[in-house]
Amino acid sequence: MEERAEGRPTLLDELPGELMMWVLIVSELVVFGAGLAAFLAVRITDPSGFAEAQSHLHRAGAGVNTIVLVTSGWLAACAVQAAEAGHIGRLRSLVAGAIALGAVFLVIKAAEYVDLAAAGISFETHAFFTFSYLLTGFHAAHVIAGMILLAVVAVPGSPRAVETGAAFWHMVDLVWVLLFPVVYLL
């Protein structure tokens, strides 16, 4: 209280962007972290079954998707800098690029789902697929939400709005770099 009265900054004042977006980022990391830990815990009961099930996934496609998302995140981060510099046209182009790469991510993900469905693999085929569909599907839903949010914040193009939208997009990126090795590589 005394520090506030003297006008000294608190730890939270150091946070870049909106506090509520950080609350959301931490919440999402906790939810996905718990889901991935549960996935790995169940895997202990049937390692060979999980390995066989994992072989049906598009590992190369998921690797490409990692490149796609981190590149999209880079464009979104550059868009924040463009917004801060007042370059509205550039920020909208960068956001459009980030959204387009989000669409590429979804197309590659959808191709995997289609192939799994064609092979008769569903949620109920094996515990591996129950988890992988839930985790990657929930993540894909966040990709769609992030694309919509980026489009919305690019319209006014204010630095604060673009920073908030980009933060959500980076959270989607962050979750994927943790999800990818656990579901596709281990």
Binding site: L15, P16, V70, A76, A167, H170, L174
Partner: peptide, 11 residues
């Protein structure tokens, strides 16, 4: 991602 994309390098 946390440090550069999300800007935590400043915090």
């Amino acid at each position: 991602i946390l440090a550069r994309y999300l800007g935590l390098s400043t915090a």
